[in-house]
């Protein structure tokens, strides 16, 4: 494994970990089934792209997009995060206020499909189906993006983001605020009856998740330098759901583990599948299609056999709690 490959893997892993932590805050902790999660990652990517790129007339206008501000790092990344949060406001106001949870889920799924189709068809906006290419990464004007140094630099920029997101998520999850979110997830009507405003709670975590998702998109686009509608079809969201379900809903460590097991793991496994198996050449579509089948089966299998995931949500025992009875009797006998 060469260092380019290691860096690629590290950046993808970081992006998936950040995304899974955000989805875990929304879905695992708060019970919001954000089936348009990938749209939030995507708006972060597009925003970061147009903030860092030159105007579209610069390279003979072979691609068309709005903006092109050539702003230096870290503005594109911050901009991507803000865009994700801003998008969460109107979407949340329409979807999260009055609808039942399964309605919320299908509305967000519909949004994801429609948003993709709009961007694909509106070429003058973000270059349509072809997508945006040649997105300059952070400091790519100062360090050759193809050099080994740059790969290390990018990983170096990414890791603090993971740590920051991790800190934010764990503070939320372990706080009284996180407790209110979990209570809402468990029984919304009862949470309302003890004075929690569910709309406010949902909007807050939807925006926080949107910000983090936007950041993950900004990080990814700076590295892969392209962003197109084919990158963010709605099944991409399902992979992240699979990751959070496998890792353990409501558990940040679980979300991280899920990110490493599912998206990153699948990426790696595909690479290991030989082009021919005993002289038989599988058709080109077969392997990717079977991966998707496996993702679907993984979700169904985990929800059936181990719905709490590999790392279940931790039970919170407070300092000074009495020793559970079963331990007392075990000790005295």
């Amino acid at each position: 494994m060469n260092s380019y490959y290691a860096a690629t893997l590290a950046v993808y892993a970081a992006v998936d970990i950040i995304a899974c932590i955000a989805l875990n805050l929304q879905f695992g902790v708060s019970g919001i089934v954000n089936f348009s999660f990938i749209v939030f990652q995507s708006i972060g990517a597009y925003t970061a792209a147009v903030l860092s790129m030159p105007p579209d007339t610069a390279n003979g206008a072979y691609q068309v997009y709005i903006g092109g501000f050539q702003l230096p790092f870290p503005i594109p990344w911050i901009g991507g995060a803000i865009a994700g949060g801003l998008l969460a406001i109107p979407v949340g106001l329409v979807v999260l206020r009055k609808l039942r949870s399964d309605y919320q889920a299908i509305s967000l799924l519909v949004l994801s499909v429609i948003a993709n189709s709009v961007i694909m068809n509106a070429r003058t906006f973000l270059n349509g189906a072809a997508g945006i290419a040649q997105v300059p990464g952070p400091f790519s004007d100062q360090v050759d993006p193809l050099s080994q140094t740059y790969q290390l630099l990018y990983v170096g920029l990414t890791i603090p983001c993971v740590l920051l997101v991790w800190l934010v998520a764990s503070r939320i999850v372990n706080s009284p605020f996180g407790r209110s979110l979990r209570a809402m997830r468990e029984h919304e009507v009862a949470a309302t009856a003890i004075g929690k405003n569910p709309v406010q709670l949902k909007m807050t975590i939807f925006i926080v998740g949107g910000v983090i998702a936007g950041l993950s998109g900004a990080i990814l686009v700076g590295y892969i330098a392209v962003w197109a509608p084919s990158e963010w079809l709605y099944p991409e969201t399902i992979i992240l759901f699979a990751a959070v379900i496998v890792g353990g809903r409501g558990n940040n460590v679980g979300a991280m583990l899920g990110a490493l097991l599912v998206p990153v793991g699948f990426f790696e496994v595909t690479r290991l599948i030989p082009a021919t198996i005993g002289g038989w050449v599988p058709p080109p579509n077969l392997i990717p299609a079977m991966e998707w089948v496996a993702i679907g089966l993984l979700i169904i299998g985990f929800l059936w056999f181990r719905p709490e995931g590999v790392r279940p949500e931790p039970r919170r025992v407070f300092g000074g709690a009495p020793v559970p009875e079963d331990l007392v009797s075990a000790g005295s006998s």
């Binding site: 399964d102 979700i299 169904i300």
Partner: peptide, 10 residues
């Protein structure tokens, strides 16, 4: 809803 979406994918 998640299960039916997984079924759709499969």
């Amino acid at each position: 809803v998640i299960i039916s979406l997984a079924a759709s994918l499969i």
